[in-house]
Write a protein that binds this DNA or RNA. Structure first.
Lengths: 91, 91
DNA sequence: GTTGGCAATGTCGAGCTTGATCATGGAAAC
DNA sequence: GTTTCCATGATCAAGCTCGACATTGCCAAC
């Protein structure tokens, strides 16, 4: 599934041009990115929760040189699947 | 950020009633859930990638009894933040 | 206002995870 | 339809993180 599929979903819910739907998708992702970058978490009941989380590790490796490189501190985003997504049973 | 905020974002992109916006959000989450449950991964360039992943581990624990319990096989959803979200630097 | 999904707690183990680099496939933009 | 640009994959190593279970309280959702 790619952005176009999501745009199609929006078009189903609200008849409009594909361009408009794509704009909506872009705006959504933009808003979500903003929220996450802002440090806020996104909680959608029944779907999942996006949660920004600081990282601490610092050990990488260079394929070519095979040398270990220090990983600079940063943040990660964790997505916790909600109940509906946890409903995934024996695949 | 909760579902209402996302609905507001949609309303900004496409003037409509809050109910319609909420419907769009629900439809989106529904579609995404469907795709993930279907085993398909969602790839949004610049935002991130949702990827269903089978679990293998099998060691849990019971708080009360303190007894180890076998974790039933299942699946997990991994969200890989895209470049824009990796842009999170020193928080 | 009501409902009920989600968070936190705590343990313990093992698989998962990040990171750089280079080529390639494919998503996104034009 | 074409081009551009991003994500993936693989490796190695150390660390970290989920995973379930059971209860309580909060807050999202209706």
């Amino acid at each position: 599934m790619i952005k176009l599929d999501i745009a199609n979903a929006i078009m189903q819910a609200h008849p409009c041009s594909r361009a408009t739907a794509l704009q909506a998708v872009d705006l959504l992702t933009e808003r979500m990115k903003q929220a996450l970058l802002d440090g806020d978490r996104i909680e959608i009941r029944g779907f999942g929760v996006f949660e920004p989380r600081p990282r601490k590790r610092g050990m990488g490796r260079n394929i070519k040189t095979g040398d270990s490189v220090a990983i600079p501190k940063g943040k990660s985003i964790r997505f916790k699947p909600g109940k509906d997504l946890r409903a995934i049973e024996v695949g």
